[in-house]
Simulated assay, not measured.
Amino acid sequence: MTEPSAGSLRVNGATLHFEVRGRGPLLLLVPGGTGGTASFDAIADHLATEYTVAAYDPRGMSRSALDDPEAEQRVAEHADDALRVLDLLSPGEPARVFGSSSGAIAAVHLLTARPDRVVHLVAHEPPLVEVLPDAAEHRALIARVGETFRTQGLMPAMSVFAAGLKKDSDSDSAGPQAEVELPPQAAARAERTMADLPYFVGRIVPSFMSYAPDVHRLQALSDRLTLACGQDSRGELPYRPAEFLAERLGTELVHFPGGHTGLTTHPAEFGEALLKTLAAGTAG
């Protein structure tokens, strides 16, 4: 694995850690969950054969420290962080963007707010549950997660959250289950992931999963947006908003290898699929 060059960027209320590798047009990777830049380690070198690949730890995660650890988190501010990284690394030139999960929500807001800075966005399983016809049920889920976190602690809250993300037929599942055994690199990140989980469950989940995108704006920008899902995620909650939006926007829903965490469990195939999707999305 090529050692990336690292830097830090002051933004409103935080200092972001970012990493850059490769040469060519900029591709900004926006991580979801508690992954940070490390979630892209297994695919970044492959992507860097064609792009200058930049990734960063979202504010409050890993090496991106908040000025105020108790600050409320907003999707618009996270999207502005992505914009600031773009402005630093690709001033005056729009860039390609990939976002996963909660990172895809921030990236969707970036596209709608500043389309002049985005050539094309690939949004992988953004849990934009507010677009769904049964959004009220998912608001109730997030409320249950928050209440469980406050009264019982982190792991019971994670069990409630994981059960709510499963297919209906899997609703008796007792908590998070990996799709496959994680490779050693992913397993080595477990300690950092656990350290970030309270912040993710307490601050990111309620804010991001209550975010309602501007669907009319996305309709106007649909030629710059690819909605993607894991081929093994069908029926799960993170799959459904992308499926719904693709149908609403009249665009193709692209399937990537694996499930919601396919970039970790199937990195080689995932990276190749992303390169193909980016090439197709910006053709001509």
Results as ranks from 00 to 15, higher is better:
63 R>G: 04
56 Y>A: 08
69 P>Y: 15
25 P>E: 08
81 D>A: 12
49 T>S: 11
98 F>M: 05
95 A>R: 03
98 F>H: 13
33 G>N: 07
64 S>W: 04
94 P>L: 14
25 P>F: 10
31 P>L: 05
88 L>H: 15
43 I>M: 06
35 G>Y: 12
68 D>Q: 08
85 V>L: 06
88 L>I: 10
45 D>R: 03
12 N>W: 13
45 D>P: 02
54 A>M: 10
98 F>N: 05
55 A>T: 08
66 L>R: 14
13 G>D: 06
14 A>Y: 12
80 D>L: 01
96 R>Y: 15
32 G>V: 07
100 S>E: 09
97 V>K: 00
96 R>S: 15
51 Y>M: 02
55 A>Q: 05
93 E>I: 13
21 R>H: 00
70 E>P: 07
37 T>E: 04
43 I>T: 00
40 F>R: 04
67 D>P: 11
94 P>E: 03
76 A>R: 00
107 A>G: 07
42 A>G: 06
31 P>E: 00
82 A>L: 04
76 A>G: 01
96 R>L: 13
18 F>K: 03
62 S>G: 10
75 V>Y: 07
88 L>P: 10
43 I>S: 03
95 A>V: 13
86 L>W: 15
13 G>F: 07
52 T>I: 12
99 G>S: 05
44 A>S: 09
75 V>T: 08
17 H>A: 10
58 P>W: 06
53 V>Y: 05
21 R>W: 11
50 E>W: 13
31 P>H: 02
39 S>R: 07
77 E>H: 13
53 V>W: 04
60 G>P: 08
31 P>F: 08
59 R>N: 02
102 S>I: 10
36 G>Y: 04
17 H>P: 00
78 H>V: 00
63 R>W: 12
83 L>D: 01
107 A>I: 07
94 P>D: 07
21 R>F: 09
22 G>H: 01
19 E>V: 06
47 L>F: 15
13 G>V: 10
22 G>D: 03
67 D>E: 11
83 L>E: 00
68 D>Y: 14
77 E>L: 14
11 V>F: 11
93 E>S: 14
41 D>V: 11
30 V>E: 06
49 T>I: 08
102 S>N: 08
62 S>K: 14
55 A>V: 06
46 H>M: 13
75 V>G: 06
52 T>Q: 12
99 G>H: 01
36 G>S: 06
73 Q>H: 12
76 A>N: 01
86 L>M: 14
100 S>F: 15
82 A>M: 06
